[in-house]
Design a protein around this nucleic acid. Structure first.
Length: 350
DNA sequence: TAATCGTGGTA
DNA sequence: TTACCAAGATT
């Protein structure tokens, strides 16, 4: 990307911001403390939600000194309704750090800001650029979307490759006049025009510079971040059959996973096998049957165990019910797989 | 690196 | 109803 193109894009953003910026409480002045408070409140929180509480918070804690002197509990009170209350505690700690380590003067450069509690890379860039006019970049959810589209970035925004490209572009764009306005213009475009769904490309001031629009890929960029890796849930099932061929089942509790459904007695978690033996009070060996099952956010690995010798008291001890046809019971999909696999194995090799 | 942290809004 | 998203940071 050549510098003249970057410069044109920068100027489009600044012109858009000048013409279209919203009137917001934290844009009244450039008080670093007030900007700081707003940036913390706005983390993962909608503008409307912050609007309702921002002025009251500043009225109660008008300066960094006032906040530092306050009790943590009262800070959290003033935070009520904003969620993520750890932010309030970290902001409070940050204020105390500024008073103790910086004589109450908020540092003006991004690197120092980022050492304060609750201030990460984004917030440091925001405070440094908006309150101190430093050429410090920032990347938030809006900026990710806007830059992925304009610069046709095919990496997922949260991926390391994507983050690297995004921060590099944000860094390049902010190297000009009015860095604070430039940074806010990126976010403002994302909030008002370059929205996640149904972006207003026809009126977008950057439409002549947008790679996604030129390639008709606006709706597929940014590419979705990969879903979080699913947890593995281990389940150990006890296969207990009576001499007459019936199978022992139990009903699960009415809360939680597979609530109210039936299954062979089971234990869950990494120590499922050991726990199952503990509950049975006897040795258990694998029946040779193991089953995989997928839930929304878990991969289940189920293994079936059988007692090494007949334990007639087991069923009574575990309060199990003898069922003639286990497949007729309301089983979870996993338990159904387990029962079918176990029955099939027994028919094949009785 | 991945889970966690709150609440409110939208399609 | 259910994702998905909203000016992220921390451990």
């Amino acid at each position: 990307m050549d510098l003249s193109e970057i410069k044109k894009i920068r100027e489009k953003f600044l012109a858009f911001y000048e013409a279209s910026k919203r009137v917001l409480p934290w844009r009244r002045n450039q008080d670093p403390y007030a900007i700081w408070v707003s940036e913390i409140m706005l983390q993962q929180t909608q503008v409307d939600t912050v609007m309702k509480r921002y002025d009251a918070f500043l009225e109660r804690f008008p300066t960094v000194q006032a906040l530092a002197e306050a009790e943590e509990l009262s800070v959290c009170e003033a935070w009520a309704g904003l969620g993520y209350y750890r932010r309030a505690r970290l902001l409070h700690r940050g204020a105390r750090a500024v008073v103790e380590e910086y004589q109450g003067v908020i540092p003006g450069d991004a690197l120092t800001l980022q050492t304060l509690p609750g201030i990460g890379r984004y917030t440091a860039g925001a405070i440094a650029s908006i309150a101190f006019k430093q050429r410090a970049p920032l990347v938030d959810g809006n900026v990710e979307r806007v830059l992925c589209r304009i610069f046709l970035i095919d990496d997922a925004p949260k991926s390391s490759a994507g983050q690297k490209k995004l921060w590099a572009l944000a860094e390049a764009l902010v190297q000009g006049e009015r860095p604070g306005d430039l940074n806010q213009s990126l976010m403002e475009l994302g909030a008002l025009i370059c929205t996640p769904k149904q972006p207003q490309c026809t009126v977008c001031p950057l439409r002549m510079h947008c790679g996604a629009l030129a390639n008709d890929r606006v709706n597929e960029l940014p590419v979705p971040n990969p879903p979080p890796k699913r947890q593995i849930l281990e389940v150990a099932y006890l296969w207990l059959s009576a001499s007459d061929g019936r199978v022992y089942l139990r009903q699960r509790g009415l809360e939680g996973l597979w609530a109210g459904l039936w299954e062979p007695y089971s234990c869950e978690g990494k120590t499922a096998h050991a726990e199952l033996m503990e509950q049975c009070g006897c040795d258990l060996v694998s029946s040779g049957i193991s089953v995989s099952h997928q839930l929304t956010h878990r991969d289940v690995r189920a293994t079936v165990y059988v007692p090494t010798k007949k334990k007639n008291s087991l069923a009574r001890r575990l309060a199990l019910h003898a069922v003639v046809d286990p497949l007729a019971a309301p089983l979870s999909a996993l338990a159904r797989k387990v029962v079918m696999a176990q029955v099939a194995a027994q028919l094949a090799a009785p």
